[in-house]
Every structure is written in C-alpha cells, then in structure tokens.
Design a protein around this nucleic acid. Structure first.
Length: 697
DNA sequence: ATGCGCGACCTTTTT
DNA sequence: GGTCGCGCAT
C-alpha cells in the first residue's frame, strides 16, 4: 500500500507526502505536481487515520471533485462522505447542523451574487442614494466582511468625505436584511462558522477532535477569514498542511491575501517548508521567459522552476496592426498546426485579460472553421429563467426569503407592482415579519382594493401550494412550479428548453440537496467536454494546461489593465501574465496589436512593460506584420460561403485501406472536392472524393 | 402597471 | 456593442 503511494514522486514531493504531522507549508510552483502531492499525502495519512478525520479544502467544486476521484482511485476506497470539498461547502455542511446556536434556522438560504446585487440596489433606492456604483459597493462590503470589519466598526472609523459613511449605512442595512431573510451570503458561510467556533468552544472542540489533519489547496487565494477558520480548526495540534504558490496569487481583488503564505511560518512556529521547483508541464524555454517576468516582482518567495523535459521551441512574440489581424494570425497558426496533425483542437488555448477580447478571436476562428468553446462566460445557471424558478423554490422552502420573493413576485407579471410592494414592505417592517407573512396579513384586512387582494391571494396560494413537503424530488417541485406559476406561458421556446434542462438535472435529487448544489455551483463546473479550441481569461485558466497557448493583447492598458495603478496592482497583473505563460506545455505565443478597439473607441496601444523584462534571445522571432496598405482592397469581411459538403471538418470517415480517420480540411467544389484526413495509425492523407473509397461514419 | 427611449457604464470572479 | 436602470409616456 505505502509503496504505491510513493511511486513516481520526486524527493521533495516524497518529503511533503511523508511529513508526519505539525505545520507544513508546501510552496508549489506552477506545474510542479501540487495536486499530486495533496492526493498522495491524503492517501498516506489515511493509512493511519480514517479518511473522515482529514479535512481537505479547495476553492472550486471542480478541484474538489478531481481530488476526491484521484484519492479514491489511489486508496481504492469510496470517500464520497469524506470532508473533501470547497471552503463554502464544508462550512455549509457544518452550519446546517449547528447554526441554531447562532439564532438562525437550519433551513437558511444562500444568496448568490445576483441576489446580493438586487438587495444592494433595493437598499440604495430606499436610502435615496442613486449611486451607479452598486457593484463596487458590494465588493467593498464583501472585502470588509472577509477581513472581519463589521458595519459598526467601519462606521466608527469615520471619514470626512461621507462616501465611506454611506457604504457603512448600506452595509449595516444589508446585514440586517439578510439576517431577517434567514439567509447567508458566501462570506457569511465562513464568518458564521468562525463565530460558531469562537462563541461555542464545545462545537469547536468537536470538530477539532474530528479533523486530525487539515489540507488546504491554493493557499495563496485564502482570505483572512478562511485562514482564521483553518487556524481555529487546526488548534493546538497544528496538523495543517497548506499548499500554494505566491506567484499565482491573482485574486487579491476578491480579498485573497497571499501574505498568508508569508505569515504561515510566523503563525505556526517551527513550520516545515518544502519547495517544489521541478516542473513537469512546460519546456525550459517557456519556463525561462516566465521566470524573467515573475522575477521582477518584489516580496516573493524566491524560487526557480526547472525541468528535465526537452528545451522545445522558443516562444514567439508577434506584433500586429490591430486586434483583427492578431486574431487571424492566431487562428491561422492554430489551423496550420492542426493540419500538420500534431495537435487536436482541444490542445489549443487562447488567453486574454478581459472577456471582450474574445469577440475578435471568435470571429477569426469561425473564419478558419475551427471549433471553439468559451470557458467561464455566462453560465447556464445565471440565466433569468433558471434563477427565477430557483427563487420560487427558495421562497417555498424558506418563507422568510424576501430576496427571492422580490425577485419573482411580479415575474411573470401578475399586477403586483412597485407601489403594492412598498405597501407590503411597510407592513412587514411595522410588524417585523417577512414579506410573505405581511401579504397574508393584508388579506385579513381591508387596506387595499379587492382587485389587489385577489392578486396577492393568488401569489400566496402559489407559494402555499408548493410547500416542499408536498414533493418527493426537486424535479417534481420544479415541474409543479413551472406550470402553476404561469411561467410556462410567460417564456419563449428557447427559454422553455433551458427550464426543461434544469428540471432534467434535478431528477431524483432531494429539494434541499438540490438548492445547496445550485447555490454552491459555478460556471466552471459545467461540462468541458468536446474537442474545441479553448478561449478563456487568465483567471479562468489557472490550474489548467494546454500544449499550445496564445496570449493575446500583451499591451499597456490590457495587461497591465488600465485600472491597475498601484505597485501592488501592477504586481498582480504581472502574476497574471506569469500564470498565463505557465499554462503552456510546448508552444507559446505572445501577441500584441498596435491599434485595438475597446468598446467603441479605437486606441493606439503600446507594448506591455512586462515584455521589456524578457531578453530578446529568449524569443524565437519577433514578427512585425504591418497593417495592409490599402484598407479598401483587402477583403473586409468576405462572407465565405461553404457548400454543405458531405464531409465536414471534424467528421469521421472510414477508408477501405487506412481505416477510420478524422476529416481535418475540405477544399474544392463539385467533382474537385478533396479532403484532408488524419488516420491515427497512418498519418495525414489528402483524398479526392471522386476516387477515394470512403464511407461516412 | 407596463413599455420605450436615453444615457452611463464598463476588469478579473473559484463560492 | 450591449446591458441596465431611470424617467417619462401611455
């Protein structure tokens, strides 16, 4: 058993896995086998203590899922019930059992960020504050919460300008409001768990005893609250193992504090520190330029990645007239590599700083007929119809959830508008009850017209008729709601399809479990299957790797982004580039454009300051491609028309002698049609349709 | 109560 | 270029 656990590990990894107990900090460079170490360490520990006594936390469901799977494969045990999960899901699990000690009901709802934004907007309106900055306000509040600054304390700090004062008032109100809704936001999940432990030592003791070892992934991304929670749980044993890389800290804007890494050794005296510097992902050339970029950052744990893989091709740096040419070059290069047969579509990734950059790239890829997928865009679960139906469910299972009620009270329109809602709100406040209870109150009185009463009664009827105890599964409840709320008639065909998909995904799942899952799910969790070029931001690229990576827009204003001004912010932008570069396994392109269209303005762009830190000799070529001389003469937007060919790119065919292959290119028309096919065991072949004996699969 | 036009506004976002 | 909220008109 123990032998397989150590198999294939290098000395540093082995040391990390075998470390017997006490605080351990693993500084794991990009591609150094970080997850492997955590998985193997978990397996090693589980030889002595049972898996339920190990707490392993990650930031994403995806990471947690992968970790679970790899662990159970390694130790050949079902660990589905083990404590391997995200910070938020672990806290949810604890709080569902223990939150009554803090005066909440255990049926609390979890607000997602659109719920939070709606609430903030509502509060601003109520305060007659017409700030267009509600997004900024929410993120301020979240930052304050995750660093333990309560509204009262924030208020007492005072400030002369009054804006902070306003935020403090909104903050206070926000906190009261969600408490009244028996709801928790993501920060509360962490904060209330801390509160529980700090105010109820017995509860803390119980979990401290239970968790004999703690493993934290992506430690550089923890915020002060998350770190404090982990320190509490580690208690005196200090059996805490944190794995992270300060060079990959790119979430400071969300409160992540990578100085947690620096503080670890202070907080845990005698902590063992192990560096993982051998990289298993990239070629030496890629590591070299990445190192030149990151090495300029002050305050980092010095480390230098190395590899014994081949040197590979030198990364390329290209410079184009505008973002369209840049995108075309990327698409063309990808296509050429693909046609050579060396790479599949999903070996390519195009990375960018801001989502709007994807537009030009998408267009170019379509022109080249390369399939692509955008990772991390708007997710299925953020669609209005999905969120609405979930809100109905939330309200029905937690009648105090005013946030959900506000969302759907007039959706589909049922004649309960702003004025009626205000009336309901006033009554709710006066009697300090939930909005739904206030509506029921109104029905008993004669304070509103009969017409409005009827509408209110209709809504209350819907909610009461859909009590969760009436249903066995989440899908039953959704089906019922979809019909009885009038939603079915309210939405169009394509949206109806989405709701069907939602209902299908809820099949056989309990209502509470389903709601938890929906609250704690993210866009990145949805399937990433399919063979396609990936388009994604640096942020979404973290933790991923691709044989061929294009980094677009390496320009001042994009990377570093315009809004990054402070040295701290610039340092984070630099880390973004570093994260991007270290995604590449074999080939890496850095591209820039002289002119770039941002929204409606066309801007002159300068090369990024970060490029100056890369020695010339480290790059294979610096291509300068001047913009076309005559703008009119170049095919502006030649709408390429393709005859619907029997054999489209990507389809599979069978050849009489070479067997099964994948069509990589089609050209010519009519009798002249030729296709390029890659036969895995034979290679690339060009076939004339007229002669070749092929059959479509 | 709803529908429409105008203007402001844009990062990144694991939960 | 697209979204979202506001204010005005119906």
């Amino acid at each position: 058993m123990s032998k397989t656990i150590l198999e294939g590990l290098n000395p540093a990894q082995k040391e990390a896995v075998l470390h017997s107990g006490g605080p351990l900090l693993i500084l794991a460079g990009a591609g150094s086998g970080k997850t492997k170490v955590i998985v193997h360490r978990f397996a090693h520990l589980s030889c002595k203590v049972s898996p339920e006594h190990i707490l392993a936390v990650t930031f994403t469901n995806k990471a947690a899922g992968e970790m679970k799977e790899r662990i159970s494969r390694l130790i050949k045990k079902d660990i589905r019930s083990a404590w391997v999960g995200t910070f938020h899901s672990q806290c949810n699990k604890i709080l569902r059992k223990e939150i009554h000690a803090l005066g909440y009901g255990c049926d609390f709802s979890i607000l997602d960020d659109s719920d939070q934004l709606n609430l903030i907007r509502h509060i601003l309106k109520e305060f007659k504050m017409y700030e267009a900055l509600y997004r900024g306000i929410l993120s301020r509040i979240s930052l304050l919460k995750s660093s333990f600054v309560g509204p009262e304390e924030f208020l007492s700090r005072g400030d002369v300008f009054g804006f902070e004062d306003k935020i403090a008032r909104v903050y206070l109100r926000y906190q009261d409001e969600i408490k009244r809704c028996n709801s928790l936001d993501f920060d509360d999940l962490i904060l209330l768990t801390i509160k529980l432990f700090e105010e109820h030592p017995k509860a803390l003791k119980k979990f401290q005893d239970s968790f004999q070892h703690i493993l934290i992934d992506e430690f550089q991304d923890t915020n002060p609250a998350q770190y404090r929670l982990m320190k509490l749980l580690a208690g005196n044993s200090g059996n805490m193992c944190a794995v992270g890389d300060d060079d990959q800290s790119i979430y400071a804007f969300r409160g992540a504090d990578h100085t947690n890494i620096m503080n670890f050794e202070k907080d845990f005296k005698g902590a063992k520190v192990i560096k993982l510097e051998q990289n298993y992902r990239s070629t030496q050339h890629i590591l070299d330029i990445a190192h030149h970029v990151i090495n300029k950052n002050p305050y980092r744990h010095p480390k230098k990645l190395w590899t014994d893989r081949k040197e590979g091709e030198k990364p390329s740096l290209c410079w184009f007239g505008n973002e369209i040419e840049e995108a075309r070059h990327i698409a063309k290069t990808a296509r050429e590599l693909y046609l050579k047969g060396a790479y599949a579509y999903n070996d390519f990734a195009v990375l960018y700083r801001v989502n709007l950059q994807s537009r030009a790239i998408e267009e170019a890829l379509r022109e080249e007929r390369l399939p692509y997928r955008i990772i991390g865009g708007i997710s299925f679960y953020q669609r209005k119809e999905i969120k609405d139906l979930i809100s109905y469910m939330r309200l029905c299972s937690n009648n105090s959830n005013n946030v959900s009620l506000r969302r759907i009270i007039n959706c589909p329109p049922r004649g309960i508008g702003a004025s009626t809602l205000t009336k309901i709100d006033q009554i709710a406040k006066k009697k300090s009850v939930s909005l739904l209870s206030a509506m029921k109150e109104i029905l008993k009185t004669n304070t509103v017209t009969a017409a409005i009463k009827e509408k209110i009664a209709g809504f209350v009827g819907i909610v009461e008729g859909a009590s969760p105890k009436n249903f066995k599964t989440a899908s039953d409840m959704l089906r019922h709601l979809y019909k009885n709320t009038g939603y079915a008639e309210f939405i169009g065909e394509d949206r109806a399809e989405n709701t069907m998909e939602l209902i299908a995904s809820a099949e056989g799942i309990g209502i509470e479990a389903f709601l938890d899952k929906m609250s704690l799910l993210s866009s990145l969790d949805s399937a990433d299957t399919g063979n396609a070029v990936s388009l994604l931001t640096f942020h979404s690229a973290k933790g991923l790797e691709f044989p061929v990576v294009f980094i677009s827009g390496v320009e001042e204003g994009i990377l570093p982004y315009l809004k990054a001004q402070e040295p701290k912010e610039i340092a984070e932008e630099r880390r973004l580039l570093y994260v991007g570069m270290t995604r590449a396994k074999e080939m890496l392109w850095l591209t820039c454009a002289k002119k770039r269209r941002l929204y409606t303005k066309i801007q002159e762009q300068q090369p990024s300051r970060f490029l100056k830190d890369i020695p010339l000799e480290c790059c294979q070529k610096i291509e300068k491609i001047p913009p076309p001389a005559k703008p009119g003469s170049v095919c502006e937007k030649k709408p390429k028309t393709f005859k619907a060919s029997l054999y489209s790119v990507g389809s599979r065919i069978k050849h009489s002698t070479w067997g099964v292959g994948v069509v990589r290119d089609c050209c010519g028309e009519g009798d002249d049609q030729k296709i390029t096919v890659n036969f895995p065991n034979v290679g690339i072949k060009k076939l004339a349709l007229k002669f070749a004996q092929i059959e479509r699969l």
